[in-house]
Computed example of a mutant assay.
Amino acid sequence: MTDSPIAFHLPFRSGLNPNLDTARAQHRTWADGFALFPDAETTRRYEAWDITRITGHCFPQATTDVLALLTDWMGCNLLCDDELDGPLGHSPVQGARFLDLLVNSVSAPPAQAPPTTNRYARASADVCARLRQRMSPVWYQRYAQHTNAMYAGFLRDMLHRHNGHILDPETLRLQRRDDIGVEPLIDFVEAALGFELPPRFHHTDEVIKLRAAVVDASTLINDAFSLAKERPLNDLHNSILLMEHLQGLDENAALDRVRTEVEELMAVMADTRALLPGLYTTVGLSDLQQKQADQFIDGMGTLLIGQHNAQVDSARYHSSVRVQHHLQTVR
């Protein structure tokens, strides 16, 4: 990993999963099974990203099998996101139908899923079937809600771009909370740690506030690392470029503003975490559940700094290496 001029200070423990090589091989076998790379050039470009390493930064605690599963999810959805940046996203009818297929892959039980030949929907359905086997129905319902919110965010983003809408900063913030896709990653912290916490923990104001802070900080950091590829497109769905456009700031001033916002979010997380011991007692967590809750909160911090380090580390975020678009008939 190299030093970056846009690096952020995040007060969390980082790590890198030691099982990268085996998980990477498992992921490649899985991706080949769904023909996610239709030609050698696409394969080369995708391999330059090293999605397994990105996932390994985010979930250093995961076993090999879980790391491979989470890499399958991340790789599939990054490819779907990129497809929507290409011709598919410029055809709202086709793009919307494609996103319906993805929602069906998450929501429909495997035996009831509508048949499809779309490679990405089939791959997504496989990942979801494996998550159903590994995690409880309660966990899966929460994960499905968050993943489908991401696809809804993809849809709204596609329509905003198609219609030439420039969003105000607050609307963009709410939009990015969905389409950044970090809420499912927070759910995956439990899968990586090998336990589940009860709904009464996840439904509290404190945990909701912590999750929102992680999502908002992830969005700002992603926008900073995406500047190089989004500035030539004048992509005002990047909050930093929107800030420059609306407030007349130059890049350095806008980045300083974003660093300040991230620091404020870190303060929110610290203040909120200080309230958790009392919360654990109030909602009746056992001693073991309290220990697991602390591990989960630590895992959220590791996820956040892991995303940061992955964006410093991966060619996806600091070069022009992109996967080519292969528009499939959506059915």
Rank of each mutant, 00 (worst) to 15 (best):
R231E: 06
P232I: 04
P232F: 08
P232L: 06
L233V: 04
N234A: 11
N234W: 12
D235G: 00
H237E: 07
N238W: 01
N238S: 01
I240S: 09
L241Q: 02
L242M: 06
M243E: 15
M243I: 05
M243Q: 14
E244W: 05
E244Q: 13
H245I: 01
H245T: 04
L246Q: 15
L246H: 15
Q247G: 07
G248D: 02
L249C: 05
L249G: 02
D250Q: 11
D250L: 12
E251A: 05
N252M: 10
N252R: 11
A253Y: 00
A253M: 11
A253F: 05
L255K: 06
L255S: 07
L255T: 06
D256C: 05
D256I: 02
V258C: 08
V258T: 09
R259K: 07
T260K: 13
E261A: 08
E261F: 01
V262G: 03
L265Y: 02
M266Y: 01
A267Y: 05
A267T: 14
V268H: 12
M269T: 12
A270F: 13
A270L: 12
A270Y: 14
D271G: 15
T272I: 03
T272K: 06
A274G: 10
L275I: 04
P277R: 07
G278S: 09
G278W: 01
L279Y: 03
L279N: 05
Y280R: 13
T281N: 11
T282L: 12
V283R: 08
V283G: 02
G284A: 07
G284I: 03
S286F: 14
S286M: 15
D287M: 15
L288Q: 14
L288A: 11
L288Y: 06
Q289Y: 06
K291P: 00
Q292Y: 00
A293N: 06
Q295I: 00
Q295N: 03
Q295R: 07
F296Q: 09
I297P: 04
I297W: 11
